[in-house]
Design a protein around this nucleic acid. Structure first.
Lengths: 131, 131
DNA sequence: CCAGTTGTATATTGTACCTATACAATAGTC
DNA sequence: GACTATTGTATAGGTACAATATACAACTGG
């Protein structure tokens, strides 16, 4: 299986790099890969690792800080928060179901067997059930 | 529940409109909302309905035709195919699992209860199990 | 206090989306 | 068979945004 705490981006993807970084890092944070109080790599360090400009990583960190995942300050770096009190976001009508269906439809179109998709979703659903 | 065969786009979303149309239509096609041989609205008709330029819809139809969902010709319009022989696409390493985790992480960040996410995924998994 | 480190701000460049407009191919009608 | 309307297609331009280069401001640690 893939090593934890790894962020992979695809420079050829039409999806913005800063958004890929946000999405990837957020998944790790939700999965509990980082403990509260822990230091994240600096924007420059992660930028070198990923082969992008440090401003691109900085933009990603800003998004996650805005979401309440990080504490971001000059000279200090990025620190992971425990996020007990996330900012009051819009809960209602969060098109998760629709986006999920669209994601599955794309996978089916690309030839992924439905059984495989069903398994992965069931597995993740179980994991969410008992944290 | 939402009326079938409806396509909704968000002009304010950073996501390209043509991609929203593709994703939405593809989900309907996978769900079997359209029968093979059936006519889809013309690019101009759908464009008027959605409030965009017909070239934007045309680009979406072209993507779906490339994927094997539509037969697209001038003067004739867009016809739904049964897609028994989709083009041999890359099956392996189709980041479905990773994208799924990222989608869930975003929903959790936005405050959607994990139980709700688990339920929706389990429901869709069941539906995929018995087509 | 000072040097180094960290995140931030601003300007520039490239790219992609969306539209406007004109064109080409097909269908239907007589 | 020719005409006309309808349909998808091709091309170019306006605009917005992503990614970078560069310079700046704030914090840390000795």
């Amino acid at each position: 299986m893939a090593s934890p705490r790894t962020i992979r981006i695809d420079l050829a993807s039409p999806r913005p790099v800063y958004e890929q970084i946000v999405s990837s890092l957020r998944a790790l944070l939700v999965a509990g890969e980082f403990s509260p109080g822990e230091q994240l790599p600096t924007v420059r360090q992660l930028a070198v690792d990923l082969g992008v400009h440090h401003n691109t990583v900085a933009e990603s960190y800003r998004v996650l800080a805005e979401e309440g995942w990080l504490d971001l300050r000059r000279g200090r770096g990025a620190v992971v928060l425990d996020r007990l009190n996330p900012k009051p976001v819009t809960v209602a009508k969060h098109g998760f179901g629709r986006h999920l269906e669209e994601l599955v439809a794309k996978a089916i179109t690309d030839g992924v067997p439905r059984s495989a998709l069903a398994e992965q979703m069931a597995a993740l659903a179980r994991k969410l059930g008992k944290p």
